[in-house]
Write a protein that binds this DNA or RNA. Structure first.
Lengths: 243, 243
DNA sequence: CGCAACATTGAAGCTTCTCAATTAAGGTGG
DNA sequence: CCACCTTAATTGAGAAGCTTCAATGTTGCG
């Protein structure tokens, strides 16, 4: 793993436009935060950057901080005694890291090909949520979205063949990208085949074979290793929980 | 499915001792609710009972209500086009149903061998959370627990052999029972082998074979179809993510 | 340019699924 | 209370799919 000591706590300004807790745009859903609330959030936030594969925190570290991703992608994973790894989730711009009731992080968080985050001290955030109920309301909304995402993951893992899982994964990535304002169709895959395999509970060779097969069947086009164009959304969707 | 028209909206009193939102005991974790808050919650709650296999709501129904389980177990599941079913979760006394940002329920909720719930109108609850931030704080805690539970489920689904999944499932059931004040060891299984299979992404025959094998290896004793005694916690735990 | 990490492809083996038959359990009505 | 009928659970054998082991090809970074 490339370990670049690239943490930059130097940038003081909170990138509010990309930080979902603070973003006025995101908060339109539930009424916007007052300037005072935004200001208080800015005071406790610290922006950091992480390089390719660099860890934000490790499984078991005391969970004193939470994060809001402002750019890039983060991989949450746990490793099991047998040496295997389960990727619990991929998080993208706008997503929140830190919904856990435990003293220490239940997963390792690593940047997938570079990422920027806003870091909050859990204690600071707790003080602010007590003071400003709207912030807590926003957190509950984000936790609810997290639950939906985990349940989608459960359905992906539990049902169907390897090819169905990979199809569902591609469609989910596409959908999530569109939802955060990115492009829908040439799907960009920041993660490796092994990451995808550990997310879907498959061997990485199997994932690779599924990509090849989906391309041969004309459902996708592998434009490059990390860019996949969906050629037939409906067929892929049917495939992902039909055949 | 046995369809008993057993819904009893007749009982007006809120069983606060078993309703985690309202339970003073549960709220000790985060400071207790004021009598006024409890009273308001009681006003909007309605207690209902459901018989064996009876549905509280179906996938796609407008999600106008949320529930808090006061007795029994509920199975949340989605069915896929190919006819297969994924059980997204089993919920027990104290658990909350309704963390979803969608207009309609993303899953079907059914009683597993009889259950009692407190039903709340989502709109009523929203009014109360606006008025009483402590209630929202409590909801966030419950949502966080839900996320942890979903992630445990993800790890169970993604990793290991069928026997490892079944071992992990038994240990998780035991732990959850102990956590809500029930017995830890002879694990009671309210659900069928098929329910377990659909939860773990296996065929029900495979689940059955795993029970038999775990018994033959001396790790468990099947006291009856629905009661399993764990004879060797450590071996089962090692087994569940080692071998 | 060269090395190291990532990805693809092939073949053999093994786990799980599917299909099928049998046994056990649970609930209903006589 | 027992017999019956339906549902649930167990067990077996064969087929399918995934994983593992192994080799080769590709990409990207220093």
């Amino acid at each position: 793993m490339t370990k670049m000591a690239s943490t930059k706590s130097a940038s003081f300004a909170l990138d509010a436009s990309r930080c979902l807790i603070c973003s006025a745009k995101a908060l339109n859903m539930c009424g916007s935060l007052e300037p005072e609330e935004l200001s208080r959030l800015s005071q406790i936030a610290r922006c950091e950057s992480f390089g390719n594969g660099e860890a934000l925190f490790h499984e078991g570290d005391p969970a004193k901080t939470v994060y809001n991703i402002t750019d890039g992608a983060i991989r949450l994973s746990t490793s099991l005694k047998n040496g295997r790894r389960q990727v619990v989730g991929f998080l993208f711009t706008g997503d929140f890291i830190g919904f856990s009731d435990r003293e220490s992080f239940p997963w390792t968080g690593e940047a997938v090909r570079g990422a920027k985050v806003c870091r909050f001290s859990r204690a600071d955030l707790a003080r602010i949520t007590t003071e400003f109920p709207k912030v807590e309301h926003r957190l509950l909304e984000m936790a609810t979205a997290d639950i939906a995402s985990a349940q989608d993951h459960i359905v992906m893992l539990g049902q169907g063949s390897a090819a169905e899982k990979v199809s569902a994964f591609l469609l989910a990535l596409s959908r999530k990208s569109a939802k955060r304002g990115g492009i829908e169709n040439p799907v960009h895959l920041p993660m490796t085949r092994e990451d995808i395999a550990d997310y879907l509970g498959l061997a990485f060779e199997t994932v690779s074979r599924c990509f090849t097969r989906l391309e041969n069947e004309g459902l996708i086009a592998i434009e490059s290793t990390r860019v996949v164009r969906i050629k037939d959304f409906e067929a892929l969707a049917d495939f992902s929980d039909d055949e």
